[in-house]
Design a protein around this nucleic acid. Structure first.
Lengths: 226, 226
DNA sequence: GATGATTTGTACGTATGTATA
DNA sequence: ATATACATACGTACAAATCAT
């Protein structure tokens, strides 16, 4: 058997830096619009500018970073309109995913999804937002996999990553946790009925409801502009 | 007024190389699986390896190139299953686009779309595949724009670019031109009725039919594997 | 508006890992 | 299996453009 050193970590510096920056952006450590000085990042990660540059350019392709030629990169500053577009696209893609998943999921996948959904009940009762958030992620991830379309699943994952920066405090407020689970429940019922179209409609509504936190984002953003 | 030099061309070498490689891959000049030697490409484009490297990494993110750490890049070799996934995703996204477009398009966009559709009639009669191909592109592009969702539109464009390598000979065969226009016609009727759901179903069917050339791809690929 | 400082963009050199004889 | 050749990964150097004063 071969000795493998730290299988999880990528061997390439640019990949490690890309992951680190992705996390930093997703969790809000790097705010939108923050300047990404190449030398500064190189120093922080103890590498030269070369892998940092490559990481930044890759992130620019996936949309997390905005590169202005000869003016450096910044964390992608998305306008409220763009956030709306992102959320809408996410809602539509999730809807497509759940429709395909309804028609294609294996019994194993179905039971797995059901188990996750049942576990969320406890999290909701305890008001355990972090726990719910993790299960929510699994819920959607399981649906992605059940599409049996690896490319579509990957697209969905990427969009989710990109929207993560905006979803942070989304579940924290008021009734959202309870409503979220109710909406999941509707999706589950549609899946159980084998009605992919209905599952898609429910999922789309669910995602758009989840985006209602977006209103506050727009509100705060507009306030900031004044 | 400021003097601008060649607005169309990107100023950065990595961008120009990325575009050149994208075209080369899309039009089939670079076949799937072809090795992408950095020095060789650098020589060909008269630059150093640095911008070539950056271009390759960026293309890897968008999926056109596959990078194996320390083993260089190759033009993404997609399995028949992956091609199917790509086509299916394309079909679903186009369906979403046309549904949103149906509900949101302006009268101007509607008449523009109609004009393009009418122009295709002549191309079909003449059997002018290249002309039809151009109009077909415009038809879909107009729908993307009519979604009034820039992000979704961009996703659709990227997918289209990526699938271009496989669509090359698609329209050349037999009845496909006539059928394609008939399917567009069904989409147009659904749009005229304001029935976005129906337009989406028609578009999905249209795209999946268009992917039937895919069967031959799979067939030839499996033959190759023997 | 001009000048100096800073930062990006590109070229090049070196070491390490991979492929091949 | 070992050694050789070679391509990649990363670091460094310099030129050009941007910005700050």
């Amino acid at each position: 058997m071969m000795i493998t050193e730290e299988q999880g970590e990528p061997t390439l510096l640019s990949d490690r830096i890309r992951n680190a920056l992705t996390d930093a952006i997703a969790c809000g450590d790097l705010a939108a619009g923050a300047a990404l000085d190449e030398q500064q990042l190189a120093d922080r990660y103890g590498v030269s500018r070369t892998p940092v540059r490559e990481a930044l350019r890759q992130l620019a392709v996936s949309g997390l970073v905005e590169m202005r030629p000869r003016r450096g990169g910044i964390v992608a500053k998305v306008t409220p309109e763009q956030v709306m577009d992102l959320f809408e696209t996410m809602a539509e893609i999730e809807a497509v995913c759940v429709r395909l998943a309804t028609y294609r999921m294996t019994p194993l996948e179905r039971s797995h999804l059901l188990r996750i959904h049942e576990e969320t009940a406890a999290a909701v009762q305890c008001g355990d937002v972090d726990s719910y958030d993790g299960l929510n992620r699994q819920f959607h991830e399981t649906i992605y996999e059940a599409t049996h379309n690896d490319f579509l699943a990957e697209q969905a994952r990427q969009l989710r990553t990109r929207l993560n920066a905006f979803r942070r405090t989304q579940l924290r407020q008021g009734q959202r946790l309870i409503r979220s689970r109710e909406e999941h429940d509707e999706v589950m019922r549609a899946i159980a009925q084998g009605d992919g179209e209905k599952a898609a409609r429910c999922m789309r509504a669910h995602m758009l409801n989840a985006a209602s936190a977006l209103d506050r984002y727009i509100a705060s953003h507009e306030a900031e502009a004044c």
